[in-house]
Amino acid sequence: MISVSHLSKRFRKTTAVNDLTFDVRPGVVTGFLGPNGSGKSTTMRLILGLDFASGGSATVNGQRYRDLVQPLREVGALLDAKAVHPGRSARQHLRALAASNRLATKRVDEVLELTGITSVADKKVGTFSMGMSQRLGIAAALLGDPGILLFDEPVNGLDPEGIRWIRDLFQSLAREGRTVFVSSHLMSEMALTAEQIIVIGRGRLITQGSVDELTAGAKDEVYVRARDARALEDALRAQAVAYRPEGPGFVVESLDAEAIGDLALAAGVALSTLTPQRASLEEVFMELTADSVEYSATASERP
């Protein structure tokens, strides 16, 4: 369990985190979403006691991180996969970490095996690809078999197979009853991985809830099509239904699929397509964070 309460972090000129309050519960994967620069990494550093809060608090299992006696046993974190001395082997990196928390050395072999990097364990980390580095970072996070896991943008730089592996890993970790907190700026990725979502923008909490709750709030639309498009349009217009043409059919904004079916039957129009379109989490996210994107939409990589 991670508890963040009225957490704030001001740097000299900017407020990176602003009165943030949320809990991350065990047993589910919680996605931490926000555009780049919205304060996700700062929040994670505050939780880990790497940065000092300007106000409020962040606790893990009810304790400040800095007061943990054996932190790796309680919290595993992956902030930056490349943050390992490039001249050290993966095994030595993990051994040093294990020694600092008095974890059994055999645990090093276990996590190497678990993350599939045993064969490169004695190679210098500097020679690792991004995917291998991410796996090493995850191995380090799992080293103390902790109940709480934090991952900052873990899928960056992974190939599709790696992404799938990481998704399955997160879900199995959550099923084991662990708290899994994963940040991303990609809503589409979180939609597949996370059950709970916390959305922030410009350091503030925008919304939180389950994926279903978040998408339920968005307006549903129905795509409808008939061989006789004109007759269908007349029928819609006659009932003062809000719609817009799209391709050969129409997107109806104000009626559900059942009502449209009834309407078409009454008007004697045979429908060829009737598809409800739920707004994707991605669209919900775009809508929610539209005001808080720090550098506006000229940047093409913006989600």
Binding site: P71, A83, V84, S100, N101, A140
Partner: peptide, 17 residues
Amino acid sequence: AEYSSGSIRTSLAAVPK
């Protein structure tokens, strides 16, 4: 070397004191 590689964060997360 801990700062240039960024591993200082890993070190401090493992040893918060």
